[in-house]
Simulated assay, not measured.
Amino acid sequence: MKLTANLSLMYTELPFLQRFAAAHNDGFGAVEIQFPYDTPIEQIQQALSENNLRCVLINVPAGDLMEGGEGLAAVPGKTAEYAAAMVECLYYARALKVSCVNVLPGRCNDENKRVFYLDTFKKNLLKTAESLAPFGITITFEAINTRDMPGFLISTGQQMLDIIAELNHPAIKAQFDIYHMALMGHNVCDFINLHAAKIGHIQFADIPKRGEPGSGTLDFPSIFRCIETSGYKGWVGAEYKPTRTTSMTMQWKRDLAVNVALCS
């Protein structure tokens, strides 16, 4: 597997720009950043270069989503704001040479408006793909569990598959987050095996508290074997909330390395 460390959730005991060296020291060759926009591009580029890392994924700015709001991508009255966010994202994505850009659907707080929010989201997702795909960037979007984010517009794997089928754009794929989908009751191995070709990025954390593998109830040795044998060729992002100092939570990574050596 091609592993990446999510620097937005991991190594948060360190200032942001120091997290790159910590990830490198733990053996990661790549990182992902949810929202890099508060840090000048030149500083991120320097941190990547100094630590022999690549950045593989960022999110389009999501407005007030992380503060409990509806976000940008699906709100009918925020299409201009989303367009501006997409331009800012493209600037960072090209400079950092990312392979994926993730679009967060956001919330719909009024169920009666859900159909309009879905329509807006699909239009924005397609526009994003048309704008970024010419630069070799895959556009992903993800389902998020409704326990952590009530009202989230897309919360199941089937909803993602339906949108991918409807839009039928080669650059639009699912971001499959094992933590969110396991909480929603999905059999994550079945989904990955059946739909590997429609997945553009995978992320993982254990349930129920989003800690590192081994901190909860998921069978990660089986899940990792599933990913390796499924035909999925993309990156696999560690996106968990460490229960201890991040570097002390890497037993799963050492176990994975041993298992790969034994099987090779």
Rank of each mutant, 00 (worst) to 15 (best):
Y11N: 03
N124Q: 14
Q18G: 11
C226H: 04
P76R: 13
N102G: 09
D190Y: 11
R54D: 02
T246M: 06
N102S: 10
A261I: 05
F224R: 12
S99Y: 01
Y82C: 01
Q159P: 06
P105G: 03
F191W: 05
D219F: 07
V60S: 01
C263Y: 12
D190T: 15
R107D: 06
T249R: 00
I202D: 00
A197T: 12
G106Y: 02
I172G: 02
C108G: 05
C55F: 11
A30D: 08
T79Q: 15
R107L: 13
P170S: 15
E111T: 07
A238N: 05
K123H: 13
R114N: 05
N124C: 08
L167R: 04
G200M: 01
G63C: 02
N193L: 05
I144W: 00
I58Y: 08
D162G: 09
I163E: 04
W252S: 06
N25Q: 15
C108P: 03
D148L: 01
N187D: 15
C100K: 05
Q43F: 11
W235D: 11
A238S: 12
G200Y: 03
N124W: 04
L3V: 04
S8K: 07
D148R: 04
P40Y: 10
P61H: 10
F141D: 12
I163H: 03
N25C: 13
P221Q: 06
C100Q: 07
T156G: 06
L183M: 12
A47C: 05
M66E: 07
T39I: 14
I139D: 02
M181Q: 06
K2Q: 12
D26H: 02
S131N: 09
P221K: 09
K123A: 13
D26E: 01
M160N: 09
A143R: 06
G71E: 02
Q18N: 14
N109Y: 10
G214Q: 09
K233P: 01
R147S: 11
I178V: 13
S264Q: 13
L125S: 03
Y11Q: 02
I178R: 03
D162W: 08
E166A: 12
A5G: 04
N102A: 06
K173Q: 08
I154Y: 07
L125K: 03
A143P: 11
V258M: 10
R94Y: 06
E67G: 14
S230K: 08
D190P: 00
G77H: 08
I164W: 00
G237S: 15
G157D: 09
W252N: 08
E130G: 04
G77V: 01
K209D: 14
T4A: 15
V103T: 07
G71S: 00
A174K: 10
I178L: 02
G77F: 04
A74C: 13
R19W: 04
L14P: 08
Q34L: 12
M149A: 12
I144V: 15
A133D: 14
P213Q: 05
D162I: 06
N124E: 10
D26T: 03
I172M: 08
Q46E: 13
T217M: 14
T4I: 09
F152K: 00
Q158R: 08
I172P: 08
A73I: 10
K78E: 07
Y37N: 02
A238M: 03
A80K: 14
V236S: 02
E212W: 03
M181I: 00
F16C: 11
K123G: 05
T79L: 13
G77N: 12
A30H: 14
